[in-house]
Design a protein around this nucleic acid. Sequence first.
DNA 1: TCACATAGT
DNA 2: TACTACTATGTGA
DNA 3: AAACACAAC
DNA 4: TACTGTTGTGTTT
Lengths: 665, 665
Amino acid sequence: MEEESSGKLSDTKLVGRMALNDNKAGMKGLDKEKINRIIMENTVGSRYYKNEQKRDKQVQERIQKMKERSKCFSSQQRKEALQKADEILASVEKERDLSRTIIHIDMDAFYASVEERDRPELKEKPMAVGGMDMLSTSNYMARRFGVRAAMPGFIAKKLCPELIIVPLNFDKYKKVSQECQSIFADYDCNFMAMSLDEAYLDITEHLEKRVLLSEKKRTFSFNAELLNGSNTNASEHPTKTFGFSAQDVSEELRFRIHQKTLLTASAGIAPNTMLAKIGSDLNKPNGQTYFRPDRDSIMEFIRALSIRKVSGIGKVSEQLLAALDVKTCGDLYERRADLFLLFSNISCNFFFRTALGCSSSRLEGDSERKSISTERTFNTISDPVKLYLKLEELCETLVGDIKKKNVQGKTVVLKIKTVDFESRTRSRSINSGIQTKDEILCIGKDLLKLEIANAKGKLALRLMGIGISKLEAASSAQQVSIRSFFTGRKNNNASTSSIDTVDLLAEVSDASNDATAIFKDTETSCEKEEEISSEKKTANFENCDLVIKCATQSTSKTDSCNITDKETKPDSIDVGDRSAKTRLFEEDMTCPLCQVTFSASEFTLGQFNLHIDSCLSRREIKNILQSESNNNQPLSRKLSPKKSAPSKRRKIASNQFHKIDKFFS
Amino acid sequence: MEEESSGKLSDTKLVGRMALNDNKAGMKGLDKEKINRIIMENTVGSRYYKNEQKRDKQVQERIQKMKERSKCFSSQQRKEALQKADEILASVEKERDLSRTIIHIDMDAFYASVEERDRPELKEKPMAVGGMDMLSTSNYMARRFGVRAAMPGFIAKKLCPELIIVPLNFDKYKKVSQECQSIFADYDCNFMAMSLDEAYLDITEHLEKRVLLSEKKRTFSFNAELLNGSNTNASEHPTKTFGFSAQDVSEELRFRIHQKTLLTASAGIAPNTMLAKIGSDLNKPNGQTYFRPDRDSIMEFIRALSIRKVSGIGKVSEQLLAALDVKTCGDLYERRADLFLLFSNISCNFFFRTALGCSSSRLEGDSERKSISTERTFNTISDPVKLYLKLEELCETLVGDIKKKNVQGKTVVLKIKTVDFESRTRSRSINSGIQTKDEILCIGKDLLKLEIANAKGKLALRLMGIGISKLEAASSAQQVSIRSFFTGRKNNNASTSSIDTVDLLAEVSDASNDATAIFKDTETSCEKEEEISSEKKTANFENCDLVIKCATQSTSKTDSCNITDKETKPDSIDVGDRSAKTRLFEEDMTCPLCQVTFSASEFTLGQFNLHIDSCLSRREIKNILQSESNNNQPLSRKLSPKKSAPSKRRKIASNQFHKIDKFFS
DNA sequence: TCACATAGT
DNA sequence: TACTACTATGTGA
DNA sequence: AAACACAAC
DNA sequence: TACTGTTGTGTTT
């Protein structure tokens, strides 16, 4: 045992992925050796580790392939590549914009600092914010032990048993963040918030106007109210007057943040976002870095800069480039020919801009959200029923978010991660906006079903996620109840009643195809026998349950379907429209819960595109079986004792119901 | 709004239930007013509060009733009661035993102290152990804020926002507890551990032997190893020699605990457990109380003692007795006539013993466990399917515990608590030991089903629990496979193969009652056609799934049953025995999941007592429905393509199968 | 035997 | 958002 | 369009 | 016991 584990520990191939980077603030001069050993001791042999190994192998293979491709290039190709690369570089250089002043401001160890501020005793203790599963931030004390953001809590505890783990308190951080952002707005009302703790500001215009500001407007003093009861000494927060330079603005900004929140921030001031971002990290914590808008000094700085410091180059890109002997941004320039040959256009453009220290000097207005999703890690689930229930849970969470953001999407994405950390996504797009739980769940279940089938029922998951993409603003289409559709009475107060849910119980006798519709309002549980009109109507259905019970003399079947077609249909109910939601049912469907399979055609009932929303409910199964054992007693008797007005019966929609009838026979 | 909520706050009727008791250690001189206000602010209006109100009302009603009954007693009755009470008191007094010396030892704020010990920085901070839902202990610092054990964390946070909540670390506490208990064993090897942090010791024998102990054996010094690296000064833990008295023993005990664990304990030394328990609380923390084995001094003490300090008198009894003007143990004596008239024999005996300061002076040997259960609080669940799944989860946890303890029980108890905090228990007893998940789940599902039905499907729960009681040692009955039962081949290596699971697929044609048994080993998935022998066998079945498929020309049904009868049956298979497990099926059963109802008789197949273990599996439903749509194609063809040897068919056990056959027809 | 309340940790 | 988990006993129907 | 890898916070 | 959750982009098929 000892041999084996030490053997594993000496296998340091993975250090590239696993070990900590000490290039972050607060990580200087610590016992990296010991920290890595502890991390490895708590990692080696885990499924997580095995997966990391696998992924590392994939990266190594990618590197091998790249190197081989690299060997095959002719000198002619290289020459051309060099030329083209230089062209690109030239055009980037031409577009270099040193005229603007961008500040990237980044709160120091944000969540941890907020917690420290509110509980000063934590300041002198190693502390991290997050849970046993995963830490979000650590304070500088904890970092000395190797405890860092994105480290699981239980490993952090091994590194530092005294570590105090404080749970996340998002509302608080949000509030503090807003305080900061209200300051940002004074300098650039279009500032770009990247997260709760960092933002870009374009202070070009502010600098122009600033020269007109009186000294008073450039003078700030501490906020007595805030300091009350705090142990922070007022003399540490003197009144200060700030000058006119960009650096002065940054100092002022950080001073004001400190006054308002008692928190420190670091900043980078530069002609573009890339440099500003790098700058804010250089003098962390509570420092700032200024890049003169001067090509030469920027180039000098960038030449020696580790590529890993650049936002957009992560673990893998670092390794890929390292294989080409590219470690600094200067190297990116040196190896521009190879890069051109080996990487895509987009990647090359990014690399070359990086090599020249160029990036956008304009802050794009906050772009619209493009997807919305939720995911959860849990203890292994294998039971399909439980997986479906988990999916349902997620869908509930998701629709909550969807409603808040008031959007709809055209693609549903299911994400799963097996217990071996293999993750997969499965998606399906349709032509109309998806926004309700039922819609998402329907597609999600189907996607999940395929995965379960694919794994032959041995799907053991540690994570599941569901989301929608291809977003658009939520349709405000009027909800019309199924009842009003059939009765012809328009539901005119749709604005007041949000969603109208109605059960339709239709009984079809085998011989005559006679049917009576019994509407059951699921909210009031009132049943009401009504005529089913076959007149042509226009309707929009959402979240309507259609329960159809069919009884022949000897058999009786029941099913509940969910009508998910929300689009206003222009025509009579016997005109089919398979364009939109029918896509859902191009293939045979199996009810994910009860595993009953139906052919696609069985799902199309005239213009209604139905889907089995839930499996045959348990009650229905009971009814089926009971009705069969109770020979000669038609189910209709039991189901609708109110059926006292046979005269009201009308032969309606029989062709539509026929299909369902057949399907059950 | 304001009016209403302040109106509610001023409604202090509930203070009796809700407010904190300051009679606990560490709660002196704090701002009780403010604390109660904060507690109420965070409680009023909650469902929890409403429930507490309801229960308080019930208690008040109980008090009213009691008072009325009290009024009706004639003076003659009172006289007799007084006489009888005095008789009881006399007999208690006669049995008073001052000859023994009991120590009750109680660790101070145990979990919190352990955490403080391991993280010294917590010592100066308000801290509690537990979760946001509920705290287990708080340290003395936190108690000053009103933060106490059994207080929900989120309220504690309001009382003391700086409170550090440390999650439970049970393994650690267990280890420390064992360290303490190893010390206890030196003084009384039969000490009675009440929990991880307290125990009773009968040191009578130790005291006798102690006079012979050399000074060395009564001398203890600090454990250098333990103190290494700790900030505890060695000089605080000098070498100490202890005398021969009971107090000396207690001091020695507490000293040794401190040396070994760095934790403090409090103790009570008295002639019986009741006084010892009270004593350990009086000088908390880190103190002890000695009661001389002297009737007069005990009576003097007990007379003025608040009844609430007595173990066994809780919130409600305190209120009930207070209504009779009983607040001290002396009052218990004064009002002995009323108590005799108003309370049960057992209660009176307890009260009178309390009034005299008498209780058991002997420690009962650790009595055997009488029940085992598990329960969980969760976010509201209403969906019956999810409730059943939750039950299944709980059963899984429970059987884990059952197996550890190696027991079985005869009663299954289901506990539920609605979102309104109404809690209910439902139980069912049978005559044979229950120990497997299937057995518990079967009964549990049925009990739950009844509740769901009772609530008309509107059962919204916040808690569910499952347990077994009427415990006995787990049966080690030999497992015999169903296959060996039928084939006559004895399963002789039962010791090696734990549980043998076999599917029996029996097809019964409607006309002839011919049957072929197809055994399917669920482990190997091998199907094997075999003769079913009707010879008399003795068998013991456990965890055997019996899947029976019945196909007539037009219909086909399938069900899987679980044979739970584990008792060795003495006779032939066509002799019914309804004595044991049949009790399970005295009433009609409805499969909790699929809601199919079966009559009790349908479940008895000869000597086999069957129960529907799980609902018709989803696959079976599919088969049923598919086979019905595939007219004229008997299911048997599909199910057993191997049926190529009709000659092997024998008409066996047909009477047994007939019942199932009928049941499906 | 069952259901529920009470109690202790 | 929001008040535990487990075991035992007493009591009345 | 779908699947996945990468990246950032 | 035990390695997140959300969003966006780029690349490949």
